[in-house]
Amino acid sequence: MTISRTENGVYSIAPTPFTPDGSVDYTSIDRMVDFYTQAGVTGLTVLGVLGEAPKLTQEESVEIASRIITRADFPVIVGVSAPGFAAMKSLSGAVMDAGAAGVMIAPLRTLRTDDQITNYYRNASQAVGTDTPFVIQDFPLTFSVEMSVSVIARIANENANAVMLKHEDWPGLEKISALRALEEDGAMPRLSILCGNGGSFLDFETERGADGAMTGYCFPDTLVELVGLAGKGERDAAHDLFDAHLPLLRYEQQPGVGLAVRKYVFQRRGVLDYDAQRAPAGKLTDTARQEVDYLLDRLARRDSRAANLPK
């Protein structure tokens, strides 16, 4: 069960649950996978930026990924980004052996020119193995690496195992249209395009040709419904649902606080036992928690999924 260029739907970015002392919370991991199953997601992406991957040891990364893969009945993509190709190769081999559906690779922050970016992905493709499908992570707001449409096309043309783009450029709607135009003209192979940024532009991204979402908003069931409505051409219903969630979605997208919000809401939804992050990490202030509670109360008037959440 490996990913291909035709993937669509919602691949949720999963957080890594921790206990207050920083230990991995495997009980919550099991409950979290069950929650995503009930939410109807197409798949999961684990050990990404918001999975706190840099704070994990190699052994923990493999154990967490393996635990999730074993429990899930859907494809699991594993982030294997690393400063060097040796670590990337080791982690990729271990998680693919455990049953991962593919891996996700972010660019090094030092990459600046088009040739540096394409050379990096060519080497990364070799490191993970050309039979291992991988996701190109295009997130300039975090990685400070600007991938033009032509660079993404080069990566797709040069690496048969580059099958998906995690699109998080901002603004990025025109980028989706340009990529689909190149595909239509035969200038590049098709890539599955799944969008991030918490779903901030998902209402229009699907209309521009995106295949769905790969993000970690605290209501993944909403993203599943939204992508489904868009796929059926129910434009107004999709936008109405998006509009109802936009205030909370926007709040969760704040740099530096988004993961804390997400884990707090997941705790309130009964997914996680704790909203803890592994150090170093920020915490929600009492005021911020009250603001999130207020947004949930307002959302509950329009979406019952936010109603009656214990505090």
Rank of each mutant, 00 (worst) to 15 (best):
L191H: 10
H245R: 02
P15G: 06
I193K: 09
L246E: 11
M147L: 12
E234N: 09
A300T: 03
D273N: 15
L111I: 07
Y264L: 11
P310Q: 11
I69K: 00
M104L: 13
A281E: 04
I176Y: 05
K55N: 06
I155Q: 05
E7T: 13
V62M: 04
E252M: 09
D34S: 11
V271Q: 02
G209W: 08
E291A: 07
G256E: 10
G196V: 05
I3F: 03
L249F: 02
F139Y: 15
L246K: 13
R278V: 01
V80N: 07
T142E: 13
A153E: 12
F134C: 01
D25T: 11
R305A: 10
E207D: 10
G212I: 01
A162M: 11
P171C: 09
A86S: 07
D34Q: 10
G270A: 08
N8Y: 10
R262F: 04
Y26W: 08
L191W: 06
G186P: 09
R190M: 10
C195E: 03
M88T: 13
P107R: 06
R235K: 14
A238S: 14
A260D: 15
L272M: 07
A106F: 04
D21N: 06
N157M: 10
G9I: 07
A98I: 04
S150H: 11
R262K: 14
T19P: 00
D211W: 06
I136W: 04
D30N: 09
V33F: 01
N123G: 15
A281R: 01
T287Q: 13
L179A: 13
T287G: 11
A65T: 07
M1C: 12
G231Y: 01
S125E: 01
P247R: 07
V265A: 07
A307K: 12
G9S: 05
Q290C: 02
D275L: 02
T287N: 13
R268G: 03
L202A: 04
N123C: 09
V163A: 03
S150W: 02
G282T: 14
